[in-house]
Amino acid sequence: MTLGVIGKKLGMTQIFDEQGLAIPVTVVKVDKMVVTQVKTVAKDGYNAIQVGTIAAKEKHLTKAEIGHFKKNNLENYRHLQEFRVENPENYKVGDEVALSVLDSVEKVDVTGTSIGKGFQGTVKRHNFSRGPMGHGSKNHREPGSIGAGTTPSRVIKGKRMAGNMGNERVTITKLKLVKVDADNRLVLIKGSVPGSDGRLVTIVPTRTKWN
C-alpha cells in the first residue's frame, strides 16, 4: 500500500464539471495527519510509516498510546494507521502528511468499514431466492436444504447461511478522484464509498490497472 490519506466521510452531494454535467461525489474531510513512527527493514523487518490523525484527549487513550506520543513530543491522536512506503528515510517522526500525496492521481482505491446490517437471513445476505408467498406455501424466506443426510452427516464448511451482514472492511477500487481542495482539506471522489457518514476511510492511489 502506498501512502495515501485518512479522512472522515462527510456524505454525498453532486457538483458540475466543465461541461456542465452533474457528477455524484462523496465528500471526505482530511484532518491533520502526522507521521508518528518510521519502520525500516533493518529494525522492523519491513518499510512503513505510521500516521496519526484525529486529535484526541488523554482520557480516551491508553497509557501505552500516551507514552508512544510523549516519547516523540507529539500531540495525541485517536487513529493510528500504517502505510507501506518504499523509502522510509524520506520521512521523519513529526512530519505532516500533506494532501499533495494525491496530486496528479487520477483514480483511487477507498477502504472503509461497510454499514452494519445486523443479523440477516440468506435472502438479503446471499441473494437466495424466496419461496412462494401464497398458494399454501409456508416456505417464504427459508434457506432450503443445507446438504445431504447421513453421509456426510455434517454441514460442509463455507455453506452460506444467515448471520451478521455488513460492518466489515471493504475496498472499492478505481474510483475517479474529482477534486482535492487543499484549503478546506476536502477530497471529492466520484460515486459512493464504503461506510456510513462520519466513519474514517482510507484513500490511496489505485494499484489496479485500468484502460
Binding site: L10, G11, T13, I15, V27, D181, N184, L186, D197
Partner: peptide, 13 residues
C-alpha cells in the same frame, strides 16, 4: 446535511 457539504454546494449554486 453536513455544514461543510452545504458550504461546498454553495459554490455551485
Amino acid at each position: 446535511m453536513n455544514p461543510t457539504i452545504d458550504e461546498l454546494e454553495k459554490t455551485y449554486l
